[in-house]
Simulated assay, not measured.
Amino acid sequence: MPSRCEIFCEILIAVLIPPLGVCLRHGCCTIEFCICLLLTLLGYVPGIIYALYAIVFVDRDEYFDEYRRPLYASPA
């Protein structure tokens, strides 16, 4: 589970560049990243709202596997 500092940094990045914040949390080429990228291209504010939702509320452990592990995750 990520620490509060990691979550805060992801939220800060998500406000500045929404797809990058989602990419750090869920990885690139995931459905969350694609949706966030599309919403950011259509409008900056919807991209921010979805990025915050994807970072805070979507449980990444449900989709977690060894090949899509984020960079900061410690090995089990």
Rank of each mutant, 00 (worst) to 15 (best):
E6S: 04
Y63N: 06
Y67W: 15
F57P: 02
Y53N: 04
P46E: 00
G47P: 08
V45F: 07
G21I: 04
C5Y: 12
H26S: 10
C28D: 05
G27K: 12
E32Q: 15
Y53S: 05
L71M: 11
R68K: 14
C34T: 03
R25S: 12
G27W: 13
F33E: 07
C36H: 01
Y44C: 00
R4S: 12
I48E: 02
D65M: 07
I55W: 02
C36V: 01
P70T: 09
Y63E: 06
T40D: 04
M1Q: 12
G43S: 10
M1R: 14
I17C: 04
C34W: 10
I55N: 03
E66I: 11
Y67P: 04
C5H: 11
P19G: 05
Y50L: 03
I17W: 01
V45I: 12
F64K: 11
L71R: 15
T40E: 07
R69V: 08
L20T: 02
R68T: 15
P46A: 01
Y63D: 06
I35Y: 06
S74Y: 15
G21K: 05
L71P: 05
P46V: 00
P18R: 03
V15Q: 02
L12F: 05
G47E: 02
P2Y: 09
F8W: 07
G27R: 12
D65L: 04
A76I: 14
T30K: 07
I49Y: 13
Y50W: 12
S3C: 09
I35G: 01
R25A: 13
E6R: 10
L37A: 06
